[in-house]
């Protein structure tokens, strides 16, 4: 009897061990699957596909909202709204019709612009706080202060200029993709980028002058 029980237990262990590579293989397949394939699985309620899709796109979607709104909490709300729409529409997604990445950027950007419009473009909470003199490691404080200065300069830009810089400079989209998302011409995107960068250069002139860079290496010295 005991032998039978042990044998049965051994069988279960062997079965489980045999399934591990299969599950690992399935995970690898999902990681390499196209967005279209993942979306069809998401529509059918596959949790793993949802996880892979989030790992692939949630960070970049959040980044769009973070650059546009200058506030982590608001950015998470926007990213959540975007992905809830993905969950809702996944079963009706038409493969090959559009790139998911472009769709996510478009939805996130529209939600951000809507939110900024509703707030009248001026939100006291969204304006970064003035630099604090809190104690801490000198380098970290300097770095933190620099990050806040840059964030403040970005948030001071008109929303459309910030949108163009977010999409092209930070998200690495082409000018054509950015033009499609912002529903303007490529020339208009280029103009928004140039005006935005000019304003940033003026706002960050002091920080830029203290920055020593090597032209050949392209990195800080």
């Amino acid at each position: 009897m005991a032998i039978t029980a042990d044998y049965a237990f051994g069988d279960k262990v062997a079965l489980a061990a045999a399934r591990v590579p299969a599950l690992q293989k399935m995970g690898t397949v999902l990681e390499q699957a196209s967005d279209d394939a993942l979306l069809s699985l998401v529509g059918a309620g596959d949790q793993k596909a949802c996880e892979v899709l989030m790992r692939r796109h949630l960070g970049r979607t959040l980044a769009v909202a973070r650059r546009m709104l200058g506030n982590g909490a608001d950015a998470e709300e926007i990213a959540q709204e975007v992905f809830l729409r993905v969950w809702t529409h996944a079963s009706r997604w038409e493969p090959g019709k559009a790139a998911l990445s472009t769709w996510l950027h478009r939805v996130a950007m529209n939600l951000c612009l809507d939110r900024l419009r509703r707030k009248g473009m001026v939100d006291i909470d969204a304006i970064p706080e003035p630099l604090s003199n809190e104690p801490g490691p000198h380098e970290n404080l300097e770095r933190s202060d620099l990050a806040r200065q840059i964030d403040a300069a970005l948030q001071a830009l008109p929303a459309r200029q910030r949108a163009a810089i977010t999409l092209v400079h930070y998200q690495g989209l082409s000018n054509i993709e950015a033009a499609g998302i912002l529903e303007v011409t490529v020339e208009a995107v280029e103009s928004l980028l140039a005006r935005g960068r000019r304003q940033l250069r003026i706002a960050l002139a002091e920080e830029a002058s203290s920055l020593h860079i090597g032209i050949r290496s392209g990195r800080s010295e």
């Binding site: 959040l62 973070r66 990050a147 840059i150 930070y170 940033l200 920055l211 860079i213 032209i215 800080s220």
Partner: peptide, 18 residues
Amino acid sequence: EEARRLDLLLAEAPLEAP
């Protein structure tokens, strides 16, 4: 050089993970 200086500054903008 001017353009790269601004690029390097913009790379310092804060960004949080989900």
